[in-house]
Amino acid sequence: MGDREPTTSSGPAQGGGCAPAASPVAEAAGIIKRFGSMVALDGARITIMPGETHALVGRNGAGKSTLVSILTGLQAPDEGTLTFGGSPPHDSPTATPGGGRWPVSTRNRRSSPS
C-alpha cells in the first residue's frame, strides 16, 4: 500500500441528452490561514456541487476544523476565494482580503468579563 495521489470525481459522467452541469453550491480555492507563524491551511480547496455530500478526513492538526470555520463564516481566510452559488459572501461587516464580505456568526460567543 504505497503512497499514491488521491483521485477525485466531479460527479456522474455527462452523457448525451443530460442537462448542463449546475454551478457549485460552495467553492473555496487557494485558502490560506495562518495563526501567528503556524500555517493551518496552505492552498486548501473544495468544490461542493448540488446534492453532494463531503467528509473531511485527516490527522489532528490537518486543518479540517479551520476549513469548516472558514466555510461557515466563523473565521476569514488570510488569502483565497470563497463563493456561494458563484457569488462571494457579502452580508457581513467582516471584509475579505479581496474586498467582498464573509458571513460571521456571533452565536455562542462569550463576552469578556468586565
Rank of each mutant, 00 (worst) to 15 (best):
M1C: 07
R4A: 14
S9E: 02
G11S: 07
P12H: 13
A13G: 07
G15C: 02
G16Y: 09
G16A: 13
G16Q: 08
G16T: 06
G17T: 03
C18D: 15
C18S: 14
A19D: 10
A22P: 15
S23P: 03
S23K: 13
S23V: 06
P24Q: 03
V25R: 02
A26R: 00
E27L: 02
I31S: 00
S37A: 15
V39Q: 11
L41E: 01
L41F: 02
L41D: 01
G43Y: 03
R45S: 15
R45M: 05
T47N: 03
M49T: 10
G51H: 05
E52Q: 15
T53H: 09
H54Y: 14
H54C: 04
A55M: 13
V57E: 05
G58N: 06
R59S: 11
G61P: 13
G61E: 14
A62G: 10
A62K: 04
A62E: 09
K64V: 10
S65A: 09
T66D: 05
T66G: 05
V68Q: 11
S69L: 04
S69T: 13
T72K: 07
T72E: 13
T72H: 07
L74E: 12
L74H: 08
L74A: 11
Q75M: 11
E79V: 03
E79P: 02
G80C: 01
T81H: 04
T81P: 01
T81G: 02
T83F: 08
F84M: 11
F84V: 13
G85S: 12
S87Q: 15
P88S: 12
P88L: 09
P88G: 12
S92H: 08
P93D: 02
P93T: 05
P97Y: 04
G98I: 03
R101I: 09
R101S: 15
W102P: 06
P103G: 12
S105G: 10
R107H: 14
S111Y: 14
S112Q: 10
P113R: 13
S114Y: 10
S114T: 08
